[in-house]
């Protein structure tokens, strides 16, 4: 029952987040912006369309959106939401979480390669590289959480986080910072990638899905929302567990991350593509610094 509530809240959050990002961008630019739930309307329209497939597209291309959505959805089951536990939880489930996201990524990369387009190959190669470079940051952040709380499953990490000493709030705050950067990388936002760009040569995520239309594209959009919500909840749980661990705080913190992404998108230009690798490696370095900081704090507590 607990798990069902978490899942519902996560899906609810996933539906809100793109609206918050868009609205923040509009406000920052002094526009009124589109309807808050415009993205839902867009997906609704897509679901009413037929489909066109390239002659070179095979079964991977057709199955990839479903695999991507399925993998992301399964990853959601591992996450608690505030005090509500996770539907599926076991020691070490943080690893399964990271690798389910990797499964979704692999499905998209292979689907892009199926079309035989050099643009999509380009996007696939970039996505594979960025994913590989971001993987250590994600798992090391999970490691930091494990270090701080002494647990290795999301449900137990966050459940035992309430009793943390106050100085660990610093660590949780930094984890939030790393997590926002990870969301930017994993969901392809500015400054790593620009979802609104019009030039195929500079796209990363968008170019991989160029040949999708209709229901397939709708599924991919939904998968992407779910992924953003999953990563945001992860960090929101971490911070909330250090001071006020209830679903409302988590929801507010997750939406604050969406707003932060909107602010970053309004203020920053996107990176030159060659700089992206450095940007992502910096996140890993940052994650390591956070880990070391947590280690130092942890050791001090036990010694002093």
């Amino acid at each position: 029952m607990e798990g069902i509530i978490s899942l519902t809240l996560l899906v609810f959050l996933a539906l809100l987040m793109p609206g918050v990002v868009n609205r923040t961008r509009a406000v920052m630019a002094g526009r009124r912006g589109v309807r808050f739930f415009q993205h839902l309307h867009n997906v609704g329209t897509l679901l009413q369309k037929g489909a066109v497939y390239s002659p070179s597209a095979g079964f991977i291309f057709r199955a990839a959106p479903a695999v991507c959505l399925g993998a992301t959805f399964t990853a959601l089951l591992l996450l608690p939401f505030g005090t509500h536990g996770a539907l599926l939880s076991f020691n070490g489930d943080v690893v399964l979480f990271a690798y389910l996201l990797a499964l979704g990524r692999a499905a998209l990369i292979l689907a892009a390669m199926e079309t035989g387009s050099s643009f999509e190959g380009m996007g696939a190669a970039r996505e594979a590289l960025y994913g590989a470079l971001a993987e250590p940051a994600l798992l090391l952040t999970a490691g930091t959480l494990a270090l701080v709380t002494g647990q290795t499953s999301f449900a137990r990490i966050f459940a035992s986080a309430g009793s943390l000493p106050p100085q660990m709030l610093i660590v949780m705050g930094l984890i939030l910072y790393v997590a926002i950067k990870l969301i930017i990388v994993e969901t392809g936002r500015i400054p790593v990638d620009d979802p609104r760009t019009h030039l195929e040569l500079t796209m990363v995520h968008e170019v991989m899905v160029l040949d999708y239309c209709g229901a397939d594209l709708a599924l991919l959009h939904v998968a992407e929302w779910l992924k953003a919500a999953a990563l945001a909840t992860l960090a929101a749980n971490a911070v909330a567990s250090a001071f006020a661990f209830n679903p409302l705080t988590v929801l507010a913190l997750a939406l604050a991350q969406a707003a932060a992404i909107g602010v970053v998108e309004s203020l920053q230009a996107r990176n030159k593509l060659a700089r992206n690798a450095t940007y992502i490696l910096t996140i890993t370095a940052l994650a390591f610094v956070v880990f070391m900081l947590a280690y130092v704090l942890q050791q001090n507590i036990t010694i002093g």
């Binding site: 066109v52 497939y53 390239s54 035989g116 387009s117 643009f119 160029l210 040949d211």
Partner: peptide, 11 residues
């Protein structure tokens, strides 16, 4: 719905 075949997008 109609499920068609079309060339891969080549810009």
């Amino acid at each position: 719905r109609t499920v068609g075949t079309g060339p891969t997008w080549g810009c």
